[in-house]
Computed example of a mutant assay.
Amino acid sequence: MSGVAAEFGELYGHAPDGVWAAPGRVNLIGEYTDFNEGFVLPLALPHTAVAAVSRRDDGILRLHSRDVDGPVVELGADALKPGGVDGWAAYPAGVVWALREAGHAVGGADVHLASTVPTGAGLSSSAALEVVTALALNDLYGLGLTRPRLALLAQRAENAFVGVPCGVMDQMASACAEDGHALFLDTRDLSYRQVPFDLAAVGLRLLVVDTRVKHALGDGAYAERRAGCEAGARALGVRALREVDAAQLSDALGRLSDETVRRYVRHVVSDNDRVARTIALLDAGDVRAVGAVLVEGHASLRDDLRVSCPELDLAVAAAVGAGALGARMTGGGFGGSAVVLVDADAADAVAGAVRAAFREAGHAEPGVFTAVPSGGARRLG
């Protein structure tokens, strides 16, 4: 914290009003279900975006990131408009725009950011930037907004200002997660339950394998799948695919003529069911059995949604082949990361097997770390 605050002082010539942090997240199960008003089970990571921020009342927004070469980006809060800001600065700028569009009296700010959330790894580095900015401005301007409301505004920034049609899971996990828990979220009404997820207590670990393959969800693939899911809901006469129960899936698929839409619907309905099954296993204390659900989920993402890639498939296969209880790709896909559920005493061997498989295939060495369920956005000082 002190490093970011000191850098802020060097940049802007005065001390910040405060320092805030918001985490990235990894999703245990429930992929591409959030924009279908379905269920998800993410957990926050210890990796965070940290922001030193001071309020300005002259309508000037100044943004700087330790992690990106370049000068301070200076913008007029009144002049912010969707598509008008490029690169990383669009995420915090979009939050200011979304707050103002919602009628909140936000003027300007001086902001200095630093993040340890890997970018392009499917771990919600963008949501962390959005949520930390939203929380800081909420505090500095005394807006009194709830965490779910801040998450919705951060999502609007990414959807309408940046142009990525993501669901609300990433922002909700970053804003609302608790230490030692996964967040069981109903994305229709944003109700949630903190589910105890202390893997160390039962001799397990959850590894994250960052394939180093960068994904870019603004390229149309994500939007195409969202549109396909919405087309499926319309064809089935429901508001969203969350209304199709797993027991009704076979009948629903028989009513769809477009094979691509059929695949998307099959994935979403079955992944909602996998979230429910995972919650039941965790509530029953049968954590080891979650591994098989992860493997099933990966097959659905690979074959029905078709958002995996060779590196993700290799990470999953190598981990399971080396004795992991289960594994699947996580996040939007086309690169990014996989999660691996493994016995704690086998974690190093499984990680080594994944790295060896990548070397043999000629891929760059993946990053591997343990996902520790961590707290959501907070003020540091």
Rank of each mutant, 00 (worst) to 15 (best):
H181L: 13
L314R: 15
G381E: 13
S300Y: 01
L206R: 13
G335I: 07
A157E: 03
T260G: 15
G336V: 07
G87F: 01
V209T: 06
V275Y: 00
G3Y: 02
A356D: 15
A315S: 13
Q155F: 10
V287T: 11
P92W: 00
G167Y: 06
L199F: 10
F358A: 13
L143T: 11
A51L: 06
C166I: 15
N272R: 00
V26G: 08
S2I: 14
G381W: 15
G237C: 13
R188I: 03
A177S: 15
L28F: 02
L282R: 01
L43T: 12
G285L: 07
E74M: 03
A317E: 14
P71S: 14
A105I: 08
Y91F: 03
R193P: 03
A338E: 04
V95P: 05
G376T: 12
A346V: 14
A351F: 07
V320H: 05
P23D: 11
V354K: 04
V96D: 07
D179W: 13
F369Y: 14
V68C: 02
V162C: 07
R149D: 08
V4N: 12
V295P: 01
V290C: 03
G59I: 03
G24A: 03
A128I: 03
G9Y: 12
F161K: 05
S308R: 04
V195Y: 05
A347N: 08
L123A: 02
E178Y: 12
V265I: 13
D17L: 09
D67M: 03
V132R: 01
V195R: 09
L153P: 15
A347D: 10
Q248V: 03
T146F: 12
P310Y: 11
R212W: 12
R205F: 09
L341E: 09
R328D: 01
E360P: 11
V85A: 00
K214P: 05
G122M: 07
S124H: 09
G83T: 12
P165A: 15
D179I: 14
V131Q: 06
A175E: 05
G83H: 08
V268L: 01
G122Q: 07
G297M: 01
L140F: 02
L241W: 09
S125A: 00
P373L: 06
V131G: 07
V202Y: 11
Q248F: 05
G76V: 08
G144D: 12
L45M: 08
L153F: 12
V320M: 06
L140R: 05
A319P: 10
E37A: 02
V208C: 04
R225I: 10
S2K: 13
V372A: 11
G122P: 11
V85E: 00
G203I: 14
S257R: 15
I60S: 10
Y264K: 13
G84V: 02
G218F: 05
T116Y: 05
R234I: 09
M172P: 10
S308N: 05
L99T: 08
G24Y: 03
L236V: 14
G122R: 10
Y192I: 06
V368K: 08
G83C: 02
V269C: 01
A109E: 08
A173R: 10
Y264R: 15
F161L: 04
P366C: 01
A49R: 00
L113Y: 02
S308M: 04
A318D: 06
V85D: 01
V265M: 11
V320F: 06
